[in-house]
Amino acid sequence: MEKKGWDEFEIGAMLRTFDGAVTDIATTLPENRPYSQSSSFTASVADWRIEKPLFNKDYCIDCQFCWVYCPDMSIISRDKKMVGIDFDHCKGCGICVQVCPTNPKSLLMFSEQKDEEAALAEWPKKEKKDQSEEPKED
């Protein structure tokens, strides 16, 4: 986008998040919102990540812990179901993996280059209770 210089701004400059009117933003899902280029939703912080979380829906119980504790609005939940991860906005902090209560975890951190199918194929199996150490990916 074309950026204005700092001295070209009017005093009291205003950024509009949306192009056009949105009547009830609190009940409009992101995919239905007319984001303008001023919204950081259109930007990406994907290059911050060293590791990325991957999601295995076979083990997910839709508890939504990852959704509520994600600091970057990157867990996509629709109709009370966890459907995936928004990799444009995920910074790779790993909170979702930490709070995931399933055994094995339905979210795990992998290196940024890891292929999703390969990761799902080598997903760890259910652990016995006395092994409290969680599986780590090299």
Binding site: L29, S40, F41, T42, Q64, P71, D72, M73, D88
Partner: peptide, 29 residues
């Protein structure tokens, strides 16, 4: 929590808070 997860966030990603910052968790809630 399932009820809560149907909320449409009014706070957007790609802000520059550190990874794992609790500020945005609080703001969302």
């Amino acid at each position: 929590l399932k009820d809560f997860s149907t909320s449409a966030d009014r706070f957007e990603g790609a802000n520059l808070l550190c990874p794992g910052c609790a500020h945005s968790i609080i703001v969302r809630e």
